[in-house]
Nucleic acid binder design. Structure first.
Lengths: 213, 213
DNA sequence: CGAATTAGATAGTGTTACTCTCCAATATTG
DNA sequence: CAATATTGGAGAGTAACACTATCTAATTCG
């Protein structure tokens, strides 16, 4: 197909497709002449992946580039590959030693083995730090509930990783990591909404209630 | 305290504090003269909340403004308040009717009662849509696992909402909703990393393995 | 042949979240 | 009281990001 067709089928404007080509996010098509090039299903697939990562996964284009590089460059074994994908996906930033300690304690308690420099380890510490900063106390039991939930979800995630080809595996992991996050978060909020309606609807609060919003 | 002190204690540059004041995110201090104003603990607290929402929660400033408005304007009962906070926090956007149907089916199955126009309902449909677009199949059982995990987490969330004051409740919900999301996601990724190491490390893939990365 | 289309390059745009520069007024110091 | 430093407030400027529009030359289709 030509670019106009690629654009039509993906719903991405031609100018944007050209931009992605320039940025190296999308491999060039096969040039049939100086002013024509054809694209195939792989291009369409890749384009849809880019869009999903950007619009749903909220990744920045440089992160998308890194992710796609990991997808295209499978490593020795699946774990390494998954690790590369994770490394690229995890947010960066530093946290206090206390927060890092809290994370380490949790990991030891759970017997979770993760890479010492894992970006996710950092990410959790940063999140802890932010909670402390605003004075939000995260109880041990709540954290346990969270960790249990996370473990169950990860169990399902890992179980569904295809092992037939590295490309498929990495793409699955990347999509699963990035695009299932909104699913998990939306489900949590919906569950909160449901419970809030059932548990809190009758609860008055100290502030004088207004008769009408 | 004066602005310089507020800046020092919060770690936010003076210019940025001034910007937040201009944008109405931070209430003005009490002017003691034409060129002096004093700020109190509430300002510091609010400032830290803004920073956490922006940097950890990744909210945009206009969303932060809406969230703070909800925090400052408690409604008739806690559920309504929580609903307002949710409404502000949920991403907007439209999805296909099929995706919306899938969401409705899930909610009916789970007997989760949520507002018909719930933004979270929309958000889940959008996430489903994105998965379909990239050809990622989310099995019924995986979705069940996710929903169970979400329910457990939400249970813990709602249980810890303080009911003594509307202000506290809303602030708790907002912080809990926004700042615990990174915690949940980081935990999921760490659990994935752990399981990936245990399950996938030995798995070769079809692609010819390289002897060295 | 001639109008329309296309690839590829370059430059421009809109948004967001700051950040910088002033200036007048006030506080501080001698 | 005068000289100096600091502060609050306002407006303009900036950097990053993700497009988007324009232009040009080639080429394809009618």
């Amino acid at each position: 197909m030509q670019m106009s067709e690629l654009s039509r089928q993906s719903g991405v404007p031609v100018a944007t497709v050209k931009y992605y080509l320039r940025e190296g996010l999308l491999p060039p098509g096969v040039a049939t002449s100086a002013t024509r090039a054809t694209y195939d299903e792989a291009h369409l697939r890749r384009l849809r992946l880019i869009r999903a990562l950007v619009q749903v996964g909220q990744l920045r284009l440089d992160a998308v580039r890194d992710v796609l590089a990991a997808v295209d460059d499978p490593a020795v074994n699946l774990h390494h590959t998954v690790g590369a994908a994770h490394h690229v996906l995890a947010p960066h930033g530093a946290a206090s030693p206390q927060a890092a300690d809290a994370v380490d304690r949790l990991l030891r308690q759970r017997r979770w083995r993760v890479h010492p420099d894992s970006a996710n380890r950092h990410a959790l510490a940063v999140a802890f730090e932010a909670l402390r900063q605003v004075g939000f106390e995260l109880s041990e039991t709540t954290l346990d509930t969270y960790a249990d939930a996370a473990a169950a979800v990860a169990e399902a995630d890992v179980a569904t990783v295809p092992t037939d080809s590295a490309e498929h595996a990495v793409e699955h992991v990347v999509i699963g990591t990035v695009l299932l996050e909104p699913v998990l978060l939306a489900l949590r909020r919906l569950a909160q909404e449901n419970l809030s309606g059932r548990r809190l609807a009758r609860k008055r609060v100290r502030t004088a209630p207004r008769t009408r919003g």
